[in-house]
Amino acid sequence: MKFKKYSMILFFILFMAIIYSLGIIKFNNWHNTMTKLHMEQIEDCKSRKEEYSKEEEREYCSKKLKHQEFVISYAETKKYYDDFIPFSSNFFIIFLIVLASCYYNSKYLKNNIISYDLARENYKKVKYKIFSRAWVSALVVPFFMVIKLIICFVLCFYQKGTTDILLWETTSTFNALYLFVDIFIALVDCLIITNICIVVMRKQHHFILSSILSYLCVIGIELFLEIVIDGLLINKIFGTDFGLVFNIITFGHFPDSYGIAPPLLVSLGIFIVTSLFVMRSYQDKEQLVIDCESNS
């Protein structure tokens, strides 16, 4: 029965697993091609060493001969692997989050199951069940971001045969704290998206319509943040691009030009505001029952 409840979330997880696997295959093919090319270049350098007369050519060859294996850093591995994952555009992933959030709850509300549930538990519990069923779908993206880190670690280890890759690639903008905040912001952003779905589903119980409306609301809020808050207010009035941090859909690569705290605080702020909307829209038990009855 739990399978039925979370079938769309399971589909989402399966989809992510497939595109991540395809990403590994593509990355591996690319890595093999690059390794082959690298080896050919080394052979070329070795055989034609004497023929190179220009300084740049000699420097190029000495570099090549110094690194006999084709090795890329952890940060580069992550960057390339990201590029090789198909269908990983955030606009598409947001749509999957919306579908997973709306699927069971819209059916639950549309078919007025709530009237039977309210005889078996109090409204507070019923309400939080609706919320938590949507919030579960917000965990998928951060979960796969952790998986991605592990995959990149394994890919890096596979090519270099050592576990010190994380240490030698630590920079000010790419370190363990950055990765943790990146995942945390992704979680908060996904929760904002699911909160928007919960608010939309309060009135619209049809699965397709509630999904489309929720998606449009997310994009609408993002456009408002980008055009009004960033473009018109912060950029025009204060002449700074600080408004870039007002963003809810760039999870996986948050804008860090002003450090970690501003995007984190902005995301948390938007999450609190959307949570207040969620609480407010589900405050009236009777009105929800009436709406479910009239929509069923």
């Binding site: 059916k107 078919n111 007025n112 199951i113 309210l118 005889a119």
Partner: peptide, 21 residues
């Protein structure tokens, strides 16, 4: 008190169930 009548069950108006179950 946002409680509910623990031992009360009701079937009012239309039957409401998941159609695909």
């Amino acid at each position: 008190e946002d409680k509910y009548p623990v031992s009360l069950r009701a079937f009012i108006e239309r039957p409401s169930f998941f159609p695909d179950l």
